[in-house]
Simulated scan of single mutants.
Amino acid sequence: MKTFVLYGIALFFLYSCGPASNNSAETETAEEETSTAEMTAVVEETSDNTLTEQERQEGWTLLFDGQSISNWRGAHKETFPEQGWKIEDGELMVLASDGAESQNGGDIVTESEYSNFEFQVDFKLTEGANSGIKYFVTEGYNSGASAIGLEYQLLDDEKHPDAKKGNNGGGTRTLASLYDLKSADASKPFKGIGEWNTARLVVQGNKVEHYLNGEKVLEYERGSEEYTDLVKNSKYEKWENFGMAESGHILLQDHGDLVYFKNIKVRELPAS
C-alpha cells in the first residue's frame, strides 16, 4: 500500500512539472521575441536623421540626412555658404563668429517654400547662444543683414541679454517666443544648455503654434487684431505686410554663436 501511494505521488509530480517546464520555455521565447521587437522599434524611433516608416506614411520629408545640404542654400544666394556652417558627426552646426548677425556664413533657407506645414528640428544651444528658426521668409525685404520672417527664437535665456528685451515687453525675445512679438509660456520645458531640445512649428492657414519638447508654448493668428497690434509695436513695423506671405522658406539663423541642429524634417498639411 505504501509503495502504491509513493508511486502515485511520483506520477503527480512528473506530470505537474513536465507541462510547467514547457510553458516556462514558451514564455521565455515569447518574452525574447517581444524584447527583440521592442528593441527594433526603439532603434527605428531614435536613429538620428532618418524617418520611421510611420513618418514616411504621414508625409514627412527629411531636410537633413546627416551628410547632405542639398535641401538648403544661403539666404539671398544660389548655393550653400562656403563658410560659417559645418557638418560633423551627423550634426549641422552654425559656427561662432563673435555674435555677429548674419555676418559670417549667413542664414540658410530651405530650397522649397511652405504654406501649411509642420516643421520639427532638434537643436542644442551653447552657453550664451542666439539663433532662430524663421518661417514665411520671402527674401523680398532688403534688410542688409538677417533675412526677414516670423521667428521661433532660439536663445540662452540665462546668459544672453536679449532675454530681457523686446518692443512688446521683456520676454518676447526669449527661447521659443515669437521673436519681438509674443512671449512663450514661462513654464516652457527646456532641458538646458548643452542638451538636445526639440522645436516644432505647426502652421495651418493663419493659425500658428510653437512647441518646445512636445509642449505647446505659444499660439497666435496671423492677420488678427492682436497680431497687427504686435507688429506695429515691434522692430518689424517698417516691413510692409510682415509675416503675411501665402508661402515662404524656412530659415536657420546665423547669429554668430555656435548652435547644433539635427533631425530636421517637414510635412505639408492640408489647407484649413
Rank of each mutant, 00 (worst) to 15 (best):
T110A: 05
E118L: 05
K124D: 08
P161V: 04
L150H: 09
S115P: 10
K134N: 09
F190G: 04
F117D: 08
Y141E: 15
F190V: 01
K159P: 04
Y114P: 10
E139R: 05
A176I: 00
S112H: 13
A147K: 06
P161I: 08
K124M: 14
G140S: 09
E111A: 11
S115W: 12
K124H: 08
K164D: 13
F117S: 10
H160D: 10
K182P: 09
A163W: 02
D157H: 00
K165S: 11
F119D: 01
L150Q: 14
S187Q: 12
D156P: 04
L150G: 03
E151C: 12
G128F: 07
E127L: 08
A145I: 10
D122S: 10
K164H: 12
K124Y: 02
T172W: 01
K182L: 12
F119T: 05
A186E: 15
D157A: 00
G140E: 15
S131H: 06
S146L: 09
G171A: 03
L125A: 02
D180R: 00
A176L: 06
D180G: 07
N168P: 07
L155M: 09
N167H: 13
E158L: 11
K159M: 10
T174S: 13
L154G: 00
L150E: 15
K165C: 07
L155N: 02
Y179M: 08
E139M: 11
R173C: 12
Y141Q: 14
G171N: 03
H160Y: 11
G144A: 06
L178R: 00
F190D: 06
S187E: 15
S131E: 03
K159C: 05
Q120S: 13
L181Q: 04
A129W: 04
K182Q: 14
G171D: 02
G140W: 06
V137K: 03
G140H: 10
G169Y: 00
L175Q: 10
T174L: 12
Q153Y: 00
T110E: 03
S146K: 13
E111I: 15
K191H: 15
S177L: 04
N142A: 15
K188G: 07
F190N: 03
Q153E: 03
F119R: 02
K124L: 14
S183C: 09
G171F: 06
S143R: 01
G171S: 03
V109G: 04
S112P: 06
P189A: 02
I133S: 04
G166N: 00
E127Y: 09
Y135V: 09
F190E: 00
F117Q: 09
G169W: 00
S183G: 11
G169D: 02
D185A: 15
N167G: 14
Q120N: 12
A163T: 04
S183I: 05
K134G: 15
L181F: 04
L154Q: 06
E158G: 06
D185P: 10
